[in-house]
Each structure stands twice: as C-alpha cells, then as structure tokens.
Design a protein around this nucleic acid. Sequence first.
DNA 1: CGTCAACTTGATGGGTCTCAATAGCGGTGG
DNA 2: CCACCGCTATTGAGACCCATCAAGTTGACG
Lengths: 226, 226
Amino acid sequence: MLQNCQAPGISRLPPRHVCGSVQHASPAYSILFHGSLVHVDKAAEIYREGDATDCLYKVQTGAVCTHKILMDGRRQIASFYLPGDPFGFADGKTQCFTAEALAATTLLPIKRTSIGLFADRNPEAGAELTGLVMSELFRAHRHLLMLSQSAPARMATFLLDMCERLNSGYRLELPMGRRHIADYLGLTVETVCRNFAKFEQNGVIALESSRRILLRDLECLKSISE
Amino acid sequence: MLQNCQAPGISRLPPRHVCGSVQHASPAYSILFHGSLVHVDKAAEIYREGDATDCLYKVQTGAVCTHKILMDGRRQIASFYLPGDPFGFADGKTQCFTAEALAATTLLPIKRTSIGLFADRNPEAGAELTGLVMSELFRAHRHLLMLSQSAPARMATFLLDMCERLNSGYRLELPMGRRHIADYLGLTVETVCRNFAKFEQNGVIALESSRRILLRDLECLKSISE
DNA sequence: CGTCAACTTGATGGGTCTCAATAGCGGTGG
DNA sequence: CCACCGCTATTGAGACCCATCAAGTTGACG
C-alpha cells in the first residue's frame, strides 16, 4: 500500500538503492530487504488494521509501534520497532494491527510478492523469513510474560529492554511518550508516572527530562523486573 | 529428545506410519508432519525449558500446554494445544517454555533436522513452516490482548475460544483444571471460580460439573469478552 | 469410609484505575 | 519577546477489582 499510494504524511524519497544489511546490524545478513527508502512523518499511519499485507518493512531511522484499538476505546500496543527491526508480519491476508510512526521515520519496504518469488527459488530466503517471524514470536512471548507481572516489574523490564535495544549506554532517549508506554505495558499513564517517580526517589533512575532517563542501578532494576 | 531418550511417563507406540493431515483438518495438508506416534501420560513433561529444540510436535489426541515458571514461583501458561495443533516452535537452539501433557496424549513428532533438509529441497515445506509460526504468532497476539482486559472478559474470551477449538457444540469438556485456566489467564484459581459462579448465576453458562460447562448465552459472553 | 487433591466460598487488604487539579513544554501569533 | 493555547506530564484522593489468606465442600480413588 505504501508503495502504490501516497498516504498523507508519507513521501517517497529519491530512489536510492540500498541494502538494509549494509546499514544495520540485525540481522547480520539479509537477502530479503533491499529497495528504496520511504519517509513517514511523526504520528503517520504506515498501515492500518485490515489493510492487505502487501509489504514487510524494516526501520532505518526513527521508531514505529503497532497497536490495536479495543472495543472499550483502550489501545493496546503490540510492539515497538527501532532502527534495524523488521515488522509487518501477519498470518492472513490482512494486518491485525495498525502501524504508526512514533517520530519522523525512514523505512525500507519489501513487497510480499517479491518474498514469495524469492523464497520459491531461494531456500535461504524462506529460512530467513521463518527466522524473522520466530523472533517476532519470541518477542510477543516476552511481552506476554511481562503483562502477568506487577506494574513496577513491567516498567523495570521495559527500561532494561529499551536500554538493550537503543544501545546508547545507560542514558536512554525514549522515542515514545507516557501514553505509548502505558498502552504497551497495559497500565494507565498515571501509574507509569508514579512508578517513574518512585524509581527516581529510590535512586534507581534519574529523570533528566520526560523522555531522557538515566539508569543508575541496573542490578536493582533487574531485581524489580523479576 | 523425545525420540532418543525414554523420559518417565513417555513411551513409544508400535511404529504405525501415519500422515498427520489424514487424521486432522488443520492445516488442510501437511508435508511436514509424518512419522510414528508417541504416547505421553497425563502431567508428563514432553520437553523442558532449556532443552534443545530437536522436534516439532503435532497433537493427535489429548491436550498439551506450554508454560514457564516465573521467579516469584507463579506459572504463566503460554498456550494450550488441542488435537490438530502443532507446537514446539522456538527461535533459538533451546525451548523457552516447558511442554506438559494435560491428559493422556498422543503426539506426532518431527525432527528439526528433517525439516531443514526438507525445506532446502522443497520451498513448500519452508512456506508451511513459516505459516505455522505465523499462526502461532497470531495466537500469542490474541493472548496478549486478552491479558490487558478485566477478569470476566478474559474468562469469556477463554470460553469462546475453547468452544471454537473443541468444536463439540456449546457443551465444553475442558481438558484442563482451574489451576491451568488461572495460570493461562494470569488470574488466581479463586478469581476463576468466582467468575464461573457469577456467569452461572447470570444464566450465561451452566456448570454441569467442574470441567463440563454448557454455554447458554453466546451473545452475552461475546459482549463480556469485549 | 478415609484420604487427598481439586474446587468453592467468604473476609480482608493492597495495588491499580478513575477522576480531578496542577505544572511543564512546545508552538503560534501578536 | 511574551501571552496564549493545547497537549503532555505529574501529583493527589477515593473507589474498585483482584490477590491473599482462611475455611469449607466436593469428588476421585483406594
């Protein structure tokens, strides 16, 4: 869909031919992702729940989340995607989540049809695809385990996960606001705030600004996250 | 592991050669699953968290769950598997959950090595494998969405899901006890009991016995599950 | 009929949500 | 530059839901 129609907030960049694996480390080598970069504005929808699953995407710069609006109006965020992460997997013909850019974001799309053709001729491509879906499954399982824990444990797990994935040391520059964090953790914005404040009072973290967080005691965070 | 060692409670049946797809409907046709049946006793472990991911399995009769014991001693059940369901997918070299038989169960195992060899030569096998992992991912996502809801909503969702999967009409014969249900839904046994009682008082279900449940008002259950 | 595990029901407390008010922050226009 | 606006973040008070602890009931099995 992104390839064919110009949705508002989405603009095609000049066709620079790049290979995803050249610019980013995970996965180490990709035979799937190669093509032209696409730019999406902050808060733009990349695809919507129910759209045809034409494409997979790989985040080059920025950040993306996939979410679903529940019947009661609450929003559940399924996953965050940072540079290097592929997303857009769905088991049927339509997406079951909506993908939204958390900030100005650059994407590398690949058409589904290309994958199919590729995998038919190239077993390695099929294996890579399976591997990507498996790691997505693994991530969903960790998310699931997190949701069965207490609010402080969820938040500690979230911070440690972000620390690992942003790999910018112990000073995190979160690409998402409190609302997104809350909807990812299955909590309210207020609970997220209160627990950040509690962590800071205990000297576990320092809130340098709303989105800039310094992790001061990783061991303590780990013990809270259990 | 199941193929090589005789764990307590696990016994190999006489080598009847069968094809999984002949006996069960989902998926319609399988080129992956074919081999000798294996029998496991009730409450036996099929594999344990950390075991090598040698095999995939397909449930022929009985029921299986995959779970993980958390640091605080609680158990989170990731999924239930009924006849026809494949399980045992893991993204690394080791399982991240323990698989346990909920009742006397017959399984159809397939070695990982066979899959790899198969998929290399046969792109269809690779595609089927990807499809299976995708539907597992889809299931994990639904579970995830469920965990962000209220206790009654989780229970209603669970009952409707079981109704669909057991396909025995509106009279369910649950293969698992209250403890397993609670650990799947992220609730306590007491809460599960109380909500079953509440559903019965409201005439939504009838508890014919502890595990035999009659769904009397599907529409009401659906509205609760939202 | 005794035993044990699973299930059920009741009373109580704590954690999280809800509602409400305030503070901060970035953008926009005068 | 500053006043204003909207949105996000924070903090407080109270209510509610579910967990916990405790006791009782049922059912399976020897």
